[in-house]
Design a protein around this nucleic acid. Structure first.
Lengths: 240, 240
DNA sequence: CCAAAAGTGTTAAGCATACACCCATGC
DNA sequence: GCATGGGTGTATGCTTAACACTTTTGG
């Protein structure tokens, strides 16, 4: 391709980085992989790469995530673009960061392992290259902000899930604990869950009822729940 | 500068666009200017340009805003990066959008006019090039989200301002009306305003008391008010 | 004196929070 | 039969939201 028609001199490389949070029913984790190119080859890095001329940013992010981890059908949300001049020592690179929150399943685990990627508990994340640590911090903040204004869960919990599981997810996101009576009351009052008559007995003798999401929530989004009154916070109570 | 060391073939141009909202005490406006280059020369456009190799995105946005309008010391906040492949018909350009909300003053007016820029009422914005219309929509949404979670006003109202002015600002942002008794009660309960003993009589015979912001709010931000409990929405009531 | 905007107080309803006990079951 | 986690209800205080009249003063 010929040089830019607007400015022959601009020479900026464009990358995307994906901050992928995962929930396994117990813990919130972060997906990392070992960088394959210099500089910092073999250091832990977010899932990222340069985008192609022919891919939009959104498409490019999806493809890169698939190529580097095997994950597909992940709803990625744009977080922020990082553009400090010297953030990459090799050359001028700006990076458009995307994030998502998915449920970790066996399918994912196999795929990820075969790609040299790995899930890390959020409190055991190793040193990351460049400004990736900052990206993760920003993504957590964003995740919390979203979770407090919109319920989420589609694609992020198993199709059927229990309220204790949902509570655990929220507790991990906020690094706090909620009173189960208030939590259940609040969640059920949102009117977006349907109780099934099945029970999950994997974590207690009594078993917990399985719920599913009501249709009409955003099918494409792991995070946002459409048509939801954003003025009514989902999580306000932080008391026990 | 030599070609990219990561990828010799990537050829993507990077621009920034600034969505500048202005408040003149009565109306919320949008700053536009007439594009100076083909394609679409002389069409109305957001304030934007390519960034330089030596400028970070944040710095580049500030400089471009200054160059094209004369505005300086504007706290710009990154909105989103737009990266559809064909968003610019001439070549592949991604644009990092920034936005701000400032008060419109005489100083600004002169400077802006001399730069061929112009303030438009939000409901009278002309057709914009590329995806700039979408950017404006996204910025309004973001502005509302911010305004509902954090009080704002520093740098965005005159140093001294009246509560009716503040109410007008919020009403314009949300395109709705608030009950003045509830609005005042809520704002004053935030504890971030100081009543002065001066009155502004420009809009009524009785005159309205002038208030100022308490120190300790974010001095650098026109929009965010730091150290504010983000779990307590500022604007929830939308009733009259 | 009157028009026009500023300023003020109360009540009812809804929501958040705190808190303690019974239930079902596998072992 | 008991330990474990699941499930439920109520009372209190705070925030929101609805609502109407008085004050000030320039003209």
């Amino acid at each position: 391709m010929s040089a830019s028609k607007y400015d022959l001199n601009q020479q900026i490389t464009v990358a995307v980085d994906c901050i992928i949070f995962g929930f396994d029913g117990e813990n919130l984790k972060l997906l990392l992989f070992k960088r394959k190119v210099e500089p910092f080859i073999n250091s832990w890095s977010l899932i990222g790469s340069l985008i192609k001329n022919s891919d939009s940013l959104d498409d490019g992010a999806k493809k890169i995530l698939y190529r580097l981890t095997g994950l597909s059908d992940v709803y990625l949300q744009q977080l922020k673009t990082y553009g400090e001049v010297d953030r990459d020592p090799l050359e001028r690179v700006i990076s458009v960061a995307y994030y998502s929150l998915i449920r970790i399943e066996q399918f994912h685990l196999d795929s990820i392992q075969s790609h040299d990627a790995e899930w890390f508990n959020l409190d055991e994340v190793p040193e990351l290259i460049f400004d990736h640590g900052q990206m993760v911090q920003d993504a957590i903040r964003q995740l919390r902000a979203q979770a407090s204004n919109q319920p989420f869960g589609v694609e992020l919990l198993p199709e059927l899930f229990t309220l204790p599981q949902l509570q655990t997810l929220y507790e991990k996101i906020y690094s706090t604990e909620f009173d189960s009576r208030n939590f259940r009351k609040k969640m059920l009052s949102l009117g977006i869950f349907i109780k099934t008559d099945k029970k999950d007995k994997s974590s207690s003798k009594k078993g917990a009822f399985l719920y599913k999401f009501k249709k009409g929530g955003s099918a494409s989004s792991a995070i946002a729940y459409e048509n939801f009154d954003s003025f009514r916070p989902v999580v306000r109570f932080l008391g026990k």
